[in-house]
């Protein structure tokens, strides 16, 4: 028997109450422990899709299974225990008076024992470099810190599947480095991770697979190097290849360097120098 998928989306169609058809038949399976990125231009249906993973949206047609459980038949509060979603804008998801309470909030909702709540809150605030702010109001933090706080609140209750909507949008370089660290952590924890993003430069180094969406449909699903060396495919989803892929593409056309996997700085430099010394 095939190993069970963490997320199984079958012929999912979703029409908003106003009549707008955001998803037009989506099929997707995410394996346990897989790290995938869903990419595509604004309005391609990415956010609508991930809102189905914990049941805040229910399919108009088709179905979504989380660990084999149909989202239509399970309450959001139960699904959320398995699927933690960090939404894009931190200001839409800060509900508590203090930074500490914000991280403890979901664990309390899920009925964690008090001692566990205390331990995990402390651990994850420290992990995200927010422990010194524990008694402050979340709204006094900077944008980057608020973002990290929303990530901490979700990681702390230890969901099996973690979904991040545009974790790097509007974040500065230093915050991105922080989030980068979190990605590595998630990899070592072997969580199932879904990242929704435009940021090719950022995401390419972590993911096993890239799923491209355009106008409510999945238009491609493949390994990063296959996707990012295909500029016309990316352009159809409003994306640009990362800089090294663009460079590699030009160089391979001139026969200077042909990447076998993800293009890498050292490899490109070596290839150019080798050709130069010849």
């Amino acid at each position: 028997m095939e190993s069970e998928a963490a997320i199984q989306v079958e012929n999912l169609r979703y029409v908003y109450p106003g009549g707008y058809e955001a998803l037009k038949g989506v099929n997707l399976a995410v394996k346990k422990g897989e790290f995938i990125a869903i990419m595509g231009e604004n309005g391609s249906g990415k956010t609508t899709l991930i809102k189905h993973f914990n049941g805040v949206l229910k399919p108009t047609e088709g179905r979504v299974l989380i660990d084999g459980v149909d989202t239509r038949e399970t309450p959001v509060s139960k699904l959320s225990r398995k699927v933690g979603i960090v939404f894009q804008n931190p200001d839409h998801q800060l509900f508590s008076e203090t930074v500490w309470d914000e991280v403890a909030f979901p664990m309390k909702n899920f009925g964690f024992p008090e001692q566990v709540v205390k331990e995990r809150t402390e651990r994850f605030l420290k992990l995200m470099g927010l422990y010194s702010y524990r008694d402050k109001s979340p709204y006094l933090l900077s944008l980057g810190e608020r973002k990290r706080l929303t990530i901490a609140a979700v990681l702390a209750y230890d969901p099996e599947i973690i979904v991040l909507d545009e974790p790097t949008a509007g974040q500065d370089y230093i915050q991105k480095e922080h989030i980068s660290g979190t990605m590595n952590l998630l990899r070592t924890m072997q969580k199932t991770v879904v990242i929704v993003t435009h940021d090719m430069e950022f995401v390419v180094q972590y993911v096993d697979r890239i799923v491209l969406m355009s106008r409510g449909r999945i238009v491609a699903s493949a390994s990063p190097h296959e996707v990012l060396l295909n500029p016309s495919l990316l352009a159809s989803a409003g994306l640009m290849p990362p800089q090294l892929a663009r460079l590699a593409l030009q160089l391979s056309r001139a026969g200077i360097y042909t990447p076998r996997r993800l293009p890498e700085t050292g490899e490109i430099v070596d290839a150019v120098l080798k050709r130069w010394h010849r």
């Binding site: 430069e201 990362p242 800089q243 090294l244 460079l247 030009q250 001139a254 700085t265 430099v269 150019v272």
Partner: peptide, 30 residues
Amino acid sequence: AIFDVYARLRAKGFPLHRWPRTPEQLAEDL
């Protein structure tokens, strides 16, 4: 990322004379 490539090549004495604005421009120069 292309600044990294440019800087490393220059450090090896590779005769690039203008810094790259885009990967395509760097590829042209190379």
